[in-house]
């Protein structure tokens, strides 16, 4: 797997562990059933959790303050549930790192970022075929979205509204 974000391919500083692992890494991603144990060990490390795309927002919300990262698994790139889960987690107030894990392709980079993901962990086979330059280009292919409240860019609806109020330069 390779990790990438807005700026390029990155080294993954998180290590995947289970409840039993007594590892020395200070950044861990654990499965949900290991979360309680790793959080309570309190060894001044950053803990993330990897969940399926049907995970419960309410259950995760209990840990928002302690979680450095939530990784959402995409079983296939055509399965868009992860986008909705990311959106729900952001709506529910999660401010940590959101990672999409699975066979996403460059053309979904913009979707993922707009729904609240910060980074993508994709199979090497895909990233080798689609180097970061393709992700960057695909991610920037639509400069302004219509939808409000998704991407960092000011939406078309919002730009029009500001235009009406004479604030075009915003």
């Amino acid at each position: 797997m390779k990790l990438l974000d807005r700026d390029g391919i990155r080294i993954d500083e998180f290590f995947r562990a289970t409840a039993e692992d007594r590892v020395s890494h200070d950044r861990l991603i654990v499965p949900p059933d290991a979360l309680e144990a790793q959080l309570s060990s309190r060894e001044m490390r950053q803990v993330g959790v990897e969940v399926s795309n049907v995970a419960s927002v309410e259950e995760l919300a209990r840990y928002f303050d302690d979680l450095a990262l939530i990784a959402i698994v995409f079983p296939a790139y055509s399965d868009g549930r992860g986008f909705t889960l990311a959106r729900r987690l952001r709506n529910a107030g999660f401010r940590g790192v959101l990672r999409a894990v699975g066979p996403l392709i460059a053309d979904q980079f913009a979707h993922a970022l707009a729904c609240g993901f910060d980074e993508i962990e994709a199979p090497e086979s895909i990233v080798d075929r689609q180097p970061f330059e393709q992700w960057r280009r695909a991610g920037a292919s639509i400069s302004l979205p219509y939808q409000q409240g998704y991407s960092r860019a000011t939406s078309i609806f919002e730009q029009r509204r500001r235009g009406r109020q004479g604030e075009c330069n915003a």
């Binding site: 790139y77 055509s78 399965d79 868009g80 986008f83 909705t84 959106r87 979904q108 913009a110 979707h111 707009a114 729904c115 639509i142 979205p145 219509y146 939808q147 998704y150 991407s151 078309i156 609806f157």
Partner: peptide, 13 residues
């Protein structure tokens, strides 16, 4: 039409 165009969340339903 505009709202649904290239929707980031609802393009892989």
């Amino acid at each position: 039409r505009q709202w649904s165009s290239h929707h980031p969340e609802f393009s892989f339903l």
